[in-house]
Amino acid sequence: MSEIKKSTVAVIDYGMGNLHSVAKALEHVADDNITVVVTSDPAVIDAADRVLLPGVGAIRDCVGEMYNAGLVPSIRKAMAEKPFLAICVGIQALMSHSEESKGVDCLNHFQGNALFFGEKHKDYDGSKLKVPHMGWNQVKQTIKHPLWANIPDNARFYFVHSFYVVPENKEEIAGTCDYGLNFCVALARDNVFAVQFHPEKSHKDGLQLYKNFIQWDGKP
């Protein structure tokens, strides 16, 4: 029998509020060999086996706090070498730039921008669509990926956001959604995966995505 190694998932805390739900959902699907730590310590992030970048609130504050807390080098290092998952505003933080708050430069891991739906967003038939895009929408899996394992195509996930990402390289798109337009809600490149929705609020399919993440070896 091979030796069972304990592995650590670091949830990055950059002072933007509630990470309780993310940590509880990871703990819910983790077995005894997985430790979930919520941390703002670069050393802990560097030592972790997997890293999750949550995102809450405004993008300017998010990216600003990542820099202020001295976490950006550890985030870049993690994205270069181990399984890495970004959620909600986290996916926007990985883009080049966001339109939010009069324009914010982001981490530029994925080339492309985060754009505003607009307060006058409309459906294909011209009827009004509410912004934020809030609630359960269907996610089309546009590639095969270990993080989609055991999740049906077009499963519904919980969203709450007013900005959406537009990557330059369409081959990086892992999932899409429809809300007056077809837009990217999941990005994948090598060991990095990012989603616009909240897996921790998306019931069994969301928990399955977290389960897939804590078992993922980082290979696409």
């Binding site: 459906d123 669509l129 895009h133 359960w136 269907q138 969203f159 809300y179």
Partner: peptide, 8 residues
């Protein structure tokens, strides 16, 4: 396909 209405 699209956003679902919610029951709370």
């Amino acid at each position: 396909m699209g956003l679902a209405k919610r029951i709370i």
